[in-house]
Design a protein around this nucleic acid. Structure first.
Lengths: 162, 162
DNA sequence: ATCGTTTTATTGAATTATTCAAAACAAGAC
DNA sequence: GTCTTGTTTTGAATAATTCAATAAAACGAT
């Protein structure tokens, strides 16, 4: 998981732009500078929404519009190159490059911060529904909601001051 | 779970309007006809969004506006009288009166149909995150995504016709 | 039962995330 | 290099939800 990788591991893991180009073509998509910039940013900044992505790539693509970013993440998501994450405590969708491990998330309901949680499927029979109502299940969305340390502290302070 | 209750069990379980009034007052809210109508409708039609709720109560409250319904469900949700459900395959939030059992959902990605799934916490140690990143977890959102029988059939037909 | 206070509903406007449609542009095949 | 087709851009549209101000209703006190 990204949060516990050392900087060198992180860098070693990150594909270079040319690799992103290969991945895009492999998915049947053209390797445009916009898509590569979005992928490179997203790989270093998982759980970013469209606006954060735009801000993050503006120094490379000063003219990119928010709508363009929306089109890009929609196309990349439906091609399976990135994953779209919709969380109850976020008003906007978030995106990430980790796609093939069906991992899950923890979100702080105070500040919205999101972190990855490794998948428990496989050694976790309980992730088969007790009753699927006849539906053929192919994905399990699992999100833990809680309070991060700093929001918990703020919360306690507030209670003591009332 | 609602889906497996017999009609008589269902009716027996449904509070009458006066019970909804008591529940509202118990939550520190005034018992207005709008709120009671929304609660009564929602109890029989779980997983309804604001617009469906409005349509469902229009015959009782012909003048209720969609914004009023939004205000009502927001207030009832934050008071804990109903539960708001945000699912990845729904553009709008849905609401339900089952609040105290932390149950989960199955959703068909084809038609959006949602059903309840009983909570697996308790006999399911895997629902504790492998790494909570320091956050204090108090809720687990679990949604199974799949295809309902009729959407699966449509899907198969489509493949054969290509 | 009536009054007065406070909460709630209503109305219309505003906001936010996202998508659409058409024109300009760029990628990759030849 | 040119051509075709996919992609980006731009501006407008849509959909869900919230905001702000006023009108109305709830409920406790009289």
């Amino acid at each position: 998981m990204l949060g516990v990788m050392t900087p060198s591991e992180t860098i070693a893991k990150h594909p270079r732009n040319s690799d992103w180009a290969i991945e895009l073509r492999g998915a049947g998509l053209r390797a445009t500078s916009q898509r590569i910039a979005v992928l490179a940013f997203l790989d270093h900044n998982p759980h970013s929404d469209a606006e954060s992505i735009r801000n993050g790539v503006l120094h490379i693509l000063p003219t990119v519009s928010l709508q363009a970013v929306h089109v890009i993440v929609r196309d990349l998501s439906s091609a399976g190159v990135i994953r779209r994450v919709d969380l109850a405590d976020s008003t906007s969708a978030q995106y990430e490059t980790r796609t093939d491990d069906n991992h899950h998330h923890v979100q702080c309901v105070g500040c919205g911060r999101v972190e990855d949680v490794d998948c428990v499927v496989g050694h976790a029979p309980c992730l088969t529904p007790s009753n699927s109502h006849g539906m053929k299940i192919f994905e399990t969305d699992l999100t833990f909601r809680g309070l991060c340390p700093s929001c918990e502290r703020k919360n306690n302070d507030k209670i003591h001051n009332d």
